[in-house]
Design a protein around this nucleic acid. Structure first.
Lengths: 210, 210
DNA sequence: CAGCAAGTGTTGACGTTGTCAACACCGTGC
DNA sequence: GCACGGTGTTGACAACGTCAACACTTGCTG
């Protein structure tokens, strides 16, 4: 055994962590992914990062603030994936379908994270400006794509916010029902996604003659 | 002050409650409605019913079981309201729209209750047979209506489970986004509901010549 | 009618959790 | 070289879900 009981030389971890906020956020996301939102405890993520249970309070006001930050990152990631899908395609009809698949895919691949974003653990009359910005950004990705399609005469030339919200509602609905395990009634999940996006498209497509 | 400290004559409440399960369920729903799911504590609802904190365990296995029962009642109420809307109309296109309005209306009028049904507080790999039955019943109301409309040539003659799930996804999406306060970007909520249901209808309508 | 068993409700206690208050350590600027 | 704000720690507390042990009540069996 090492004789030095006190004053250990070269402690492997200095008193100040360096970027504890980042580390806590990462660890929180890992834990949520593994055990769900309900399984997240402040004490455990502190321990996992190698820090005491209340160190977190120097970086987040409370548990809700931590979850809000997690949600904010989720919206940022979601927007990136939506934009990627849209840009990878030809900014056309097919690319729009790909965006829908990407949205639902994000939710299904990260169910617990998605739940933090929409499950009511956050906000509830509290407005976090940073969260609003990122959520708005993800929504805007959808609006931009629809605007392009309207311009090209692919989609109806209607109130774009209304149309975007309609589209969002559908993919959000499919995503949350899938996450909640409510889709066992239908056959293959991929078939449902394809069908639903096709019917969505029919509903908002421009049917005028060119 | 009454001299009788012990052995009070005629206790206003007998030892056995009579129908404690029913009372607990009602009180739980009232509390959830008032303070949300997160605000529900077993101790408080016990106290509110005038019973000790653990009396509840004679009627529900644990907190989750109580919430599952609340969710089950929610699905039952939802089905009733859907069927009412469908039957009140002429079993036609307009009645179907009314069903959509009723669905979203239920969620918006009972946001916390709706969240218990879909927010992942329940099931999560656990299957409650009674819950499944009621959830299935609500879904079936939708299937029945769509089947009638397909028969009448109003809606496309496609896989009915697929179509019903698509419809369900849309109304569920609108409902949850509304509950989560994510629809402030759009204008009047009623306009969105009308628009969304109209576009939904276009997407699944039968366009063949009669 | 005696008594026993199952059902129902109570009290006490335990471990866990989020959070606050008070204190300790660290780095930087005067 | 020293004060100070930022950062991390320990101790404590109330609230919560849940278990175990006990008490009362009702209804059945002999």
């Amino acid at each position: 055994m090492s004789p030095a009981k006190r004053a250990p030389r070269k402690p492997p971890r200095p008193y100040h962590h360096g970027n504890l906020r980042r580390a806590l956020l990462d660890e929180a996301l890992v834990t949520i992914r593994a055990e769900g939102v309900e399984g997240l405890t402040l004490r455990e993520i502190g321990a996992r990062v190698g820090v005491s249970r209340t160190a977190l309070y120097r970086h987040f006001a409370d548990k809700r603030a931590l979850l809000t930050a997690v949600a904010t990152e989720g919206f940022r990631t979601l927007r990136e994936q939506l934009v990627s899908a849209w840009d990878a395609g030809g900014h056309d009809d097919a690319a729009f379908q790909a965006m829908g698949v990407a949205y639902i895919g994000f939710a299904v691949a990260n169910p617990s994270h998605y739940r933090v974003m929409f499950g009511g653990f956050v906000h509830a009359e509290v407005h976090d400006p940073e969260l609003e910005v990122e959520a708005e950004g993800a929504f805007q990705a959808l609006v931009d794509a629809l605007a392009a399609l309207q311009r090209d005469g692919v989609m109806r030339a209607e109130d774009i916010a209304l149309m975007a919200t309609h589209v969002w509602s559908l993919v959000h609905g499919v995503a949350t029902l899938a996450i909640d395990g409510q889709l066992h009634r239908t056959g293959a999940f991929d078939d449902l996604v394809r069908y639903s996006l096709a019917r969505l498209r029919t509903g908002i497509a421009d049917t005028r003659k060119a």
